[in-house]
């Protein structure tokens, strides 16, 4: 266990710990606008989840492309593992978002509770459904070689189709979500308080590294499972 090889895991753990604690204690602007107040702290816990999810999904698609070029079992295993952990992070992002919406949006659209039917909530839910469908497709095919190929084709097709929509629709329609229809739905560096950014940027790096770490473990588990099945 040499430090040279594992430095990024130390970095991930340190950063995630730092942003989790600092997220509660640093001074944030107390915004009356949109009823944000202290809930702005959710920025540190909610937005990094989506960045991590998108990173993992893009890596998954990258492995799917590689799979179609090589047809090796390894690339298929990695594509599935990255999608699986990405789906986990999308669940976390959805949960943190809904919990926040429960306090800030509830009642504003005539609907109460955590689900307000906001376009960004809906788009995120669609993205989750697509990856659930990806795993249902995988589980339905017994032949390994066939499964890898068909799953890769669906993964690339779904990504090519949904990614433009996820990036286009939220910018077109009115929304309650910060950022709204004026621009980038995730963050707006020019308009953010610098105090927020000193926690937010480390949070992106920390959570993405943690996501990669979890995926590495999932990949190893899958390899062990395959070996046990063969033995």
């Amino acid at each position: 266990m040499s430090f040279k090889q594992h430095w990024w895991k130390w970095l991930a753990a340190t950063l995630v710990m730092y942003v989790t604690i600092a997220g509660f204690f640093i001074q944030t602007p107390n915004l009356r606008q949109g009823g944000l107040f202290q809930t702005i702290r959710n920025l540190f816990y909610h937005v990094p989840m989506w960045f991590t999810m998108l990173t993992l999904f893009f890596v998954s698609v990258w492995y799917s492309v590689k799979h179609l070029r090589s047809f090796s079992a390894e690339t298929d295993l990695k594509a599935a593992a990255f999608a699986k952990v990405g789906l986990l992070f999308s669940c976390l992002g959805m949960a943190t978002g809904m919990e926040w919406a429960n306090y800030t949006w509830s009642g504003t659209t005539g609907r109460t509770g955590p689900w307000t039917g906001d376009p960004k909530q809906v788009c995120a839910a669609l993205l989750m459904l697509i990856y659930f469908a990806y795993f249902i497709l995988r589980s339905g095919i017994k032949d390994e070689e066939k499964r890898g190929r068909i799953a890769a084709v669906y993964n690339i097709f779904a990504c090519a189709m949904i990614v433009p929509l996820i990036f286009v629709i939220p910018r077109l329609v009115d929304s309650l979500h910060p950022g709204g229809s004026q621009g980038n739905p995730a963050l707006n560096p020019k308009d953010s308080d610098p105090h927020l950014l000193i926690v937010l940027y480390p949070a992106f790096i920390g959570w993405i590294l943690l996501g990669l770490w979890i995926t590495q473990l999932v990949v190893r588990m899958e390899r062990v499972k395959q070996k046990l099945e063969l033995a």
């Binding site: 993205l127 697509i130 469908a133 249902i136 497709l137 949904i162």
Partner: peptide
């Protein structure tokens, strides 16, 4: 074509297709 290659029925197509065509 995906559903046919997976040896599945039209139900799989609905599962794969609904999230994609909702937008």
């Amino acid at each position: 074509a995906v559903a046919a290659r997976a040896g599945q029925n039209a139900a799989l197509m609905a599962i794969l297709g609904f999230p994609l065509v909702t937008p």
